[in-house]
Design a protein around this nucleic acid. Sequence first.
DNA 1: CGCTCGGTTGATATCCCTCAATGAACGTGG
DNA 2: CCACGTTCATTGAGGGATATCAACCGAGCG
Lengths: 229, 229
Amino acid sequence: MLQFSLKAANVRALPSQLLVEPAPTHHSPTVLRLSPRSTLFLEGYARAPQYRVVEGCVALSQSLSDGRRQIIDMIGPGRMVGIGVGERNRCSAETLSYVTLEAIDSVDHAELERGLEEMVLRAQAHATLLGRKTAPERVASAILDLADQFLRPSRGCKRNTICFNLHPTRGDLADWLGLTVETVSRCFTRIKKAGLIDFNHPEIVTLLQPATLAEIAAGSRAIDNTNQA
Amino acid sequence: MLQFSLKAANVRALPSQLLVEPAPTHHSPTVLRLSPRSTLFLEGYARAPQYRVVEGCVALSQSLSDGRRQIIDMIGPGRMVGIGVGERNRCSAETLSYVTLEAIDSVDHAELERGLEEMVLRAQAHATLLGRKTAPERVASAILDLADQFLRPSRGCKRNTICFNLHPTRGDLADWLGLTVETVSRCFTRIKKAGLIDFNHPEIVTLLQPATLAEIAAGSRAIDNTNQA
DNA sequence: CGCTCGGTTGATATCCCTCAATGAACGTGG
DNA sequence: CCACGTTCATTGAGGGATATCAACCGAGCG
């Protein structure tokens, strides 16, 4: 039947842990530290608590009954998790790296509205990506988005280059971009061969030509494959 | 290059009108009446005013530089337009039918937050549709969504059936669902031949088996085509 | 050391896009 | 009233981007 089978959804064994106790801190804000593949909350359950991400990467996802999974958003440092999720959560939230969270007890309206608006804008841009962009365009967009959110830690592997840790696996990226693992992997190699990015370990990516990458992401340029090494 | 060309984006001549003056009303809320294919606001321009839809259908859309278009949301009676659009609009808004709007001068926080949350939830569901559903599933989902939003006017063409006016054209639906006109049309005929819906004029649709349609929309059932007339 | 997991690559299949033609509905102008 | 153009919808034939299936490799780990 489908061109999307269970396989495409990268079904995982199960969350490695379901909750982690707060770590002690010296004053007010409660801080949580989670391992990769921890579940913050699950689709269909009671309303989620709200956090702010201090460090690391959290994925929001929805699943169809047959296991097809769609990652709705990748959330990095500074952003809120647990807002815009509906009364009974319409999303699950999973950590994709070691994550430090700060519990939010009360949000003021301005902050909540800013957070919600950011969710809306990102979701809209993502809809355009999912509905109208080609596979290479999606991957280029993803790389730039993640670079933007996760630049901080390991800046500048070399002089003048932007190098960062790509927290999601190829499978996570596939579920985010509406593709399969294989297609994501092939796009990475193509983009690498075109000289736009570089990586040895698949998680550590260096941007060599961010401007060109942005053009590809925007759909105004194709990948140049004449550049075979 | 792309499998999505300019054609796929259903590029239109241009908005038939750009603004329409308020119609006189007897008291406070300013009411606007717009014709089909009027533009409420355009992507990239100064922040949009805010309205509530009283009657009719408004489409929010984004476009790529080469003309590929993605409709982000279809907005029906009761919902707000012009929120969650960013400072410089990241969306255009176009009427798909005769539309009655009510200008909103001030929204209280609770209402704004409810509106924004609804935008987020719908955008998330739509991302799952765009990323992981097959063409027939998308069309089934769209029919149910529109039925839900636009049931009111022409209820019950016949006894016990749900009949409504499908405001968007096949082209609009294609841009909403990340498909092409032809694919949308083929899905409609398949769903009709399977006995799940009926229509003579392509805009007036009757739901014959909403429950089955919902199963298809959810991805838990395939279209039964043994049912050839 | 064997197992699993994540990533990559190749060969093949298929869903949906592209291109093309047709027909109905509608408005316009002669 | 009737040609004429335009828009929208439908249908068919063919092709292409991406999914599927399969094999292999390296790393981590009990």
